[in-house]
Design a protein around this nucleic acid. Sequence first.
DNA 1: GGGCTGACCTACT
DNA 2: CAGTAGGCCAGCC
Length: 138
Amino acid sequence: MKPIGSQNDPAQMEDVHPEKTDFQTWARNVCQVIQGIPRGHVLTYGEVARLAGPGGSARRVSMAMRYAPKGVKLPWHRVINSQGKISFPPDSPYFSEQKKKLEREGVRFKGDAIDLQRFGYQGALDALLWGIPPAGPS
DNA sequence: GGGCTGACCTACT
DNA sequence: CAGTAGGCCAGCC
């Protein structure tokens, strides 16, 4: 992917208004939410979108992660779709990589999907607001 | 300026 | 439980 290509206009780069809930601000919020997911838990796109703020749609979550530079450490593998499955094609290298990372963190697959009842980060909002660690799956 | 695509979601049939 | 329909919005052609 190319970084905006020929965007040499200084006006567009510097004239940024963080107060507004534009895509960049919202995307940054999404990154915060994803980084707040503890090890061994996962969140769905819809939940991340809701936690990131108003005007959030699940599609934008995926865009935000692609939007983030490589330098940013983002546990993107902890984000899955509402079906509890990985959103990559099974033959994609990303699929195996994500599954591998998740299993390494203790997330077990029930067939081809994850049991959201167990590994779904239900305490996401609490942790984001008060820093309360989640109760691990027993 | 319009049209199609996409790491998606919810609801309905 | 599988398939379909509508909605969502940034990027790219």
